[in-house]
Design a protein around this nucleic acid. Structure first.
Lengths: 132, 132
DNA sequence: TTTAATGATACTATAATTGTATCATTTGTC
DNA sequence: GACAAATGATACAATTATAGTATCATTAAA
């Protein structure tokens, strides 16, 4: 059971790497050298972050990317949303024809409560807190 | 992202069904009629619960199964462990060659803290609390 | 013009989850 | 004893999610 997937994990590490080099435009090539992860995978991942406005990218020679926002404006929960969809711990219960009494289901209520807790914690984590 | 899989979900519902009929030995056939889920899947699922000592099964005609323990002794977290393995929200970070500084990784630390929270909540949920 | 970068996107591989099927065994009942 | 109705064990198949690769187009500095 994973709260964050490897894609999110990698993305966060890449962002931390950029945070360590603020002011510089860093090519993916360099990021890959600093944090160990598959090159092609990193490429795609950074492209997504760029599309989502988390990083700003510069094309062409001497190009690369840099953080597009302040460290405290980049939330873990947003990165998770990009790569894993919304944090929703009880999605399976929403599928049709499974739960005959969805609105009153006690199991679902409990999971929901836990979900709220987790979300509250996740929302407090930003790149800034991760860089301490 | 799922905290509990459908298998766990089904299992819990089946157990709640048994809880509603305590004292009776219920065949899987009957459980399936009460809660909507695939018959063959239910069969296997109950077999696992029997093997794990959560339910007691009776073979032969008029056989079936019943809860093997008190409602407050059957914990959600144990059912999860049976079908999903231990609750561990940061397993992906433990894979080799991903994190160069595993012991100090701030992301992992945060996830760990959330994991503790979730575990604490999960441990408090038993069949008894689910039946209110 | 060349080179080093990103953009877009399609594809493959692997693993986990979900679901099915079959044959053997047990036990109550006629 | 034969039959019927149940579980036990277990192998298999289908589907979905995750992880990872590859390719071609575009951009911009040197």
């Amino acid at each position: 059971m994973k709260l964050i997937t490897r894609e999110t994990d990698y993305a966060v590490r890449a962002l931390m790497c950029l945070a360590n080099n603020q002011g510089m435009v860093m090519p993916v090539e360099k990021i890959v050298r600093e944090i160990k992860l598959p090159h092609a995978f990193a490429r795609r991942l950074i492209q997504v972050l760029a599309r989502e406005g988390i990083v700003r990218s510069v094309k062409g020679k001497n190009g690369g990317c840099e953080l597009a926002k302040n460290l405290d404006k980049i939330k873990l929960v947003d990165i998770m949303a990009i790569f894993q969809g919304d944090v929703c711990l009880n999605e399976c219960l929403f599928k049709k024809n499974i739960c005959p009494n969805r609105s009153t289901c006690p199991l679902r209520k409990k999971i929901r409560a836990i979900e709220s807790l987790v979300l509250k914690e996740l929302r407090s984590i930003t790149l800034a807190t991760l860089m301490h």
